[in-house]
Amino acid sequence: MKLFEITAQPLSLDEVARRVVRPDCGAVATFAGVVRGTTATQEGVRGTDFLNYEAYTEMAEALLARIAAEIQGRWPKVVAVSIVHRVGRLEIGESSVVIAVAAPHRGDGCFEACQYAIERLKAIVPIWKEENWADGQVWVEGPRQPELVSHLGVPGAL
């Protein structure tokens, strides 16, 4: 059973939680990222039809494992981490990502580690989403992480 996985299959919160259950763990915190059908913007509410996710699978799975290692450095009592991200077409309400963190007790960092995992995932893991609505589509770009940017020396590329 993989702890860090990019998959085209629908995600189950419970199934990912079971990947981290251990005999010495009494706490499992989970996070699900779900496709939002409506987004409040300054111009009003925008509707989404569906999302299309694409990943650089080999690199993404390696970076998910690295995020888990970072978590175990920051919260040493955390025993197990699983992060699973879906790719392909996702409908409103479906989970795009599920994170589960297990620790002996609830105070051992599992809640904080869940949040850390999703923030790091969105910053460094090579996964992209294409948002589709009634009259168009656009690839959503996350905020730039200056230390990761490559460019050919064109001013303003950052």
Partner: peptide, 15 residues
């Protein structure tokens, strides 16, 4: 060598 735009995985936190 892989080239790609800034990443945007996840789905449920404010953008």
């Amino acid at each position: 060598v892989a080239l790609f735009p800034p990443v945007s995985g996840g789905g449920a936190v404010a953008e």
